[in-house]
Amino acid sequence: MDLGESGALHAVSSAVLAVNRHLSVREVLQVIVRAAAELIDAPYAALGIPDEDGAFAEFVTEGIPPERERAIGPMPRQHGMLAVMLKDGEVHRHGDIRKEPGFWGWPAAHPVMKGFLGVPIRDGDTTLGILFVASEEGVGFSDRAEELLTLFAAHAAIALSNARLHEANRELSVVEERNRLARELHDAVSQKLFSLRLLARAGLSGNPVGALTQVEQLAGEALGELRTAIYALTDLPGDGLADRLRKHCEVLDHVYPAAVTFTAEGAPDDDQAVYRIAQEALHNALRHAEAHNVSVTLTDRLLEIRDDGRGFSDAGSGLGLASMRERARLAGGELSVRSGGEGTIVRLELP
């Protein structure tokens, strides 16, 4: 099971890069396990994440078919060699794990494993998880395999920590988005409803026909604002960028008189910044430019929003452009805005 020096370095590099492309904790766990099995050339691998009670909160495997995994039953809790590793946080390598004092046996459907190599995934003094590989052979794993898996576990700790931070940031972004929507509802819908009350009162003593016309218009606008806000509450971070933008454009197409179309051929990795820029550009086109047609095009390297509205004279200030440019800068992209009498084109080019 030894690997050559160059092949080993390539395997570690590929595995770490694969891990860091995934952002959710569950995805990271699965990629770590698969990469560990490939790195050591082992038929089986698993990764357990401890909970606050010293058992496993999550347990991900590689090499065991799904139907057999279901037959094995619930994830291990606080017994066997995995429990020993959770407690001592040490590297364990055995030629035949069944002969070890800490071995408790397996469920009936569990495959027979002899060779065992387990290493902790640590962040300082904290054990983030237990990573192990196993084989059906009783030969065991080499010193080189232990060295490689230990090295990979150190890199996996960084990826796992980043994934947890990313999920925490996503939760914070949900809270921020709800607060933004609350402010938007107050600023837009509440003001229109207040205007409706004033018009209704004025219509009773003045020009009821004219007042009713304005009431109808304002009520339609308020309904549109409310629908958009309600949709946004169900569109908080979670879906892929292309799906979120497609649904958002569909709602806007129904709410506003303008025709809003969307086409996509792929999507960039940094979806949050791109999505917010698209939202702001659509807001400008539909609420300020009085556009009749708005098109959104998305690829893995480009976001483009075109409208045939009246445009605006200064493409470098106002209308949320400052925040759009800042989001583009943080995403490592370049934002360009071209506006005139024939409409506006907002382009975000990503590296």
Rank of each mutant, 00 (worst) to 15 (best):
M1F: 12
E5S: 07
G7A: 14
V16L: 13
L17R: 14
V25R: 14
I32G: 11
A37I: 03
A42D: 03
A45K: 08
A45G: 15
A46E: 02
A46Q: 06
P50N: 10
G54I: 05
E58D: 15
E67S: 13
R68E: 06
E69H: 08
A71F: 03
I72V: 14
P74Q: 07
Q78I: 07
L86N: 01
E90R: 15
H92I: 07
H92P: 04
H92S: 11
G95S: 07
G105Q: 11
P107C: 04
F116Q: 10
D123W: 01
L131M: 07
V133F: 01
V133R: 05
A134D: 01
G140D: 07
S142Q: 13
R144L: 15
A145S: 14
T150E: 04
A153V: 07
S161P: 00
R164S: 08
N169K: 08
S173P: 01
E177I: 00
L181Y: 04
A182L: 12
A182M: 08
K192Q: 10
L193M: 13
F194I: 11
S195M: 12
L199C: 06
R201G: 02
L218C: 05
E225V: 02
R227P: 00
G240T: 10
E250N: 06
Y256K: 02
Y256H: 12
Y256M: 01
P257L: 01
A258S: 13
T261R: 12
A267M: 06
D270C: 08
D271F: 05
Q279E: 15
Q279V: 09
A285F: 03
L286E: 06
E290Y: 06
T299C: 03
R306K: 12
D307P: 11
G309H: 05
G316P: 13
G320F: 06
L321R: 14
R325E: 14
R325W: 05
A328H: 09
A328S: 14
R329F: 00
G332I: 03
E334C: 10
R347S: 12
